[in-house]
């Protein structure tokens, strides 16, 4: 059995977001790049499954659509424990384009893991599109994934409870928090091995980009906080009623 984990290269979650070119493009100056946190959890779960599989899972591959600058993030996945990696050499312009690229690679795998969203654009669309390209089932919001005797069982949170499903293979799991407890920290050995593991670069296939960024808007600045003296309840009520208009 082979597992493919799709990785997005995203800005560190503490990055101060700025835009350039008249608010039509994200300004990447000084940005630190990380593995999309949901993808990192997916990778962690894949490694746990492989370790517990007694050899039944022969390989974990990570794949990312991105330029050469995404390679440190890809190598970090190798340091964490993926066996090899593929970089599809293209700018990830939109979900359709990315899914079309991933489909070429993903057809050789039994389980394809996607984070439920990427922490940069929160698109949440690649996993579903990918399963359409592959003509295989996809299950979204997966919070647990087990393999017993070659049978895959997944759980997803539903309103007021949990739903357990079995599925045929291959399939695409779109995973959310809970799939692994926390991302695995790479060991020294893993870090040193990362450069020795294969990172294959493949050409992008022709695919359309269906959506385009028009412009970005930052959320409006937080309004100044008004302090009201604890004694002065009347003033507080007055402000809530007449100024904030919430009561």
């Amino acid at each position: 059995m082979k597992i493919l984990v799709c990785i997005s290269n995203v800005p560190d979650t503490t990055t101060k977001i700025r835009f350039k070119d008249d608010n039509t493009a994200f300004d990447t100056t000084g940005v630190q790049w990380i593995i999309n946190p949901w993808d990192e959890l997916a990778l962690t779960r894949a490694i746990e499954l492989k370790e517990a599989s007694g050899g039944a899972i022969e390989k974990i591959t990570v794949v990312s659509v991105g330029p050469k600058t995404a390679e440190p993030t890809i190598r970090k996945s190798l340091a964490i424990g993926a066996d090899d990696a593929i970089r599809i050499d293209a700018e990830p312009t939109d979900a359709y384009f990315v899914a079309a690229q991933l489909a070429v690679v993903a057809k050789d795998y039994d389980i394809v893991l996607n984070g439920i969203e990427a922490s940069d654009y929160n698109g949440s669309a690649v996993g579903g599109m990918l399963s359409e390209f592959l003509e295989c089932p996809s299950i979204s919001a997966v919070s647990n994934l087990e393999i017993e005797n070659g049978e895959v069982k997944v759980s997803r949170e539903i309103d007021g409870g949990t739903e357990v499903l079995s599925t045929q293979l291959p399939f695409v799991a779109i995973v959310q928090k809970g799939i692994a407890k926390e991302p695995r920290i790479p060991s020294m050995r893993g870090i040193m091995m990362a450069r020795k593991k294969p990172l294959n670069i493949v050409e992008a296939v022709d695919a359309e980009t269906l959506t385009e960024f028009e412009n970005f808007e930052l959320p409006s600045a937080k309004a100044a906080c008004k302090m009201v003296d604890a004694e002065n309840v009347k003033e507080l009520v007055d402000l809530l009623h007449n100024e904030a208009k919430v009561i």
């Binding site: 920290i185 790479p186 020294m188 990362a194």
Partner: peptide, 17 residues
């Protein structure tokens, strides 16, 4: 180097977590 940054991050992650 990439490796040095990864080690720094690994130490930071363990300490903060």
């Amino acid at each position: 180097s990439e490796e040095q940054l990864m080690i720094q991050q690994a130490a930071k992650d363990y300490a903060e977590r």
